[in-house]
């Protein structure tokens, strides 16, 4: 063993814990994600964002759908709900309306949120449901073995597009913007500091907030398409990203290995669904209406 290795082992035993460990269900780590998968990096950033947000973590709940990213809920040491494929957003809607004191975060994959779950995304954004949606976009269906996703660019092969994908992908920030999200940003897992900062900022904002996180799936996307390992993808993110805060979301669709526009695109104020409901009923019903705060009676 090298001298430096000796030193590190000694330090590891005597010194601090990794600062993110308290945010994780340590009895469930190591996680299932492949070597070089970017999901873990995004979760790492999310843990830092939780620290920096100053939120009472007992009041933060995380909801995931099904997929590799969907496993995130199971690793975070929060009230955590691993729901069904595509339905994290409606579950989160129920949780948030059931107890408006909770800060509800949806953490899921691109297929989950925009294929099977697309309709829910549109409507939750339209209603300005007060939840934060973090989408790890790896351009594929990781969990099921690399099938084409609604985000797969035109060109690369996927198991169900064996000759290369010919379908046009979604531009996720554009959808979120068009549907009325109050906060929209896109970062890659190369942009760890910006991502952590965006997550923190979004955690402390109200309304339907959306963060797209571009993330490599070496196992089923990049290696299959001869784009190398996770680290090679992250290098590509590094070399091809341009930060354009405030960019018009309609101009920032992602092509295959082309330019990547990252940044914060939308940050606006809009009454949330619950605020609108309370305002409206107060106006119409006057004293007969007590604004809804959420706690079920007798609990």
């Amino acid at each position: 063993m090298s001298e430096s290795l000796d030193l590190h082992l000694a330090l590891a035993e005597t010194e601090l814990e990794n600062p993110v460990l308290p945010y994780l269900r340590q009895d469930r780590i190591p996680h299932i994600w492949c070597p070089g998968c970017g999901i873990g990096t995004s979760v790492n950033c999310f843990c830092r964002a939780l620290t920096d947000s100053g939120l009472d973590l007992d009041k933060v709940a995380i909801v995931s759908g099904i997929g590799c990213t969907g496993r995130t809920a199971g690793y975070l040491n929060l009230d955590s709900f691993h729901t069904t494929h595509g339905r994290a957003i409606p579950f989160a809607t129920g949780l948030k309306l059931g107890n408006p004191d909770l800060n509800v975060v949806v953490y899921s994959g691109d297929g989950d949120l925009f294929a099977i779950g697309g309709n829910h995304f549109f409507h939750a954004a339209r209603r300005n449901m007060d939840i934060l949606v973090i989408c790890v976009n790896n351009f594929t269906y990781g969990m099921t073995g690399g099938q084409v996703a609604p985000t797969t660019p035109v060109g690369p092969t996927q198991t169900t597009m064996p000759l290369g994908n010919f379908e046009s992908p979604f531009n996720l920030p554009f959808i979120a913007d068009a549907c009325g999200a109050t906060y929209v940003s896109r970062w890659t897992v190369y942009h760890v500091r910006q991502l952590a900062k965006a997550m923190k900022e979004a955690l402390n904002k109200k309304g339907f907030r959306f963060i797209e996180v571009m993330s490599p799936c070496p196992t089923l996307y990049s290696r299959r398409n001869r784009l190398g390992d996770g680290v090679d993808q992250v290098k590509y993110y590094k070399e091809n990203s341009v930060i354009k805060n405030g960019a018009d979301t309609k101009d920032i669709g992602l092509g295959y290995q082309g330019e990547i526009v990252v940044g914060k695109f939308v940050d606006r104020e809009r009454a949330t669904w619950l605020e609108s409901m309370n305002d409206h009923f107060s106006k119409v019903l006057g004293d007969q209406f007590k604004p809804y705060g959420g706690k079920p009676e007798g609990v």
Binding site: T93, G94, L102, H123, E297
Partner: peptide, 24 residues
Amino acid sequence: GGVFIQMEDELAASIAIQGGVWAG
């Protein structure tokens, strides 16, 4: 005193209520 929300479909309705349960 409570909430009613009309969801976008029954898939949403049948899981939103379960979110409501876990909120108490």
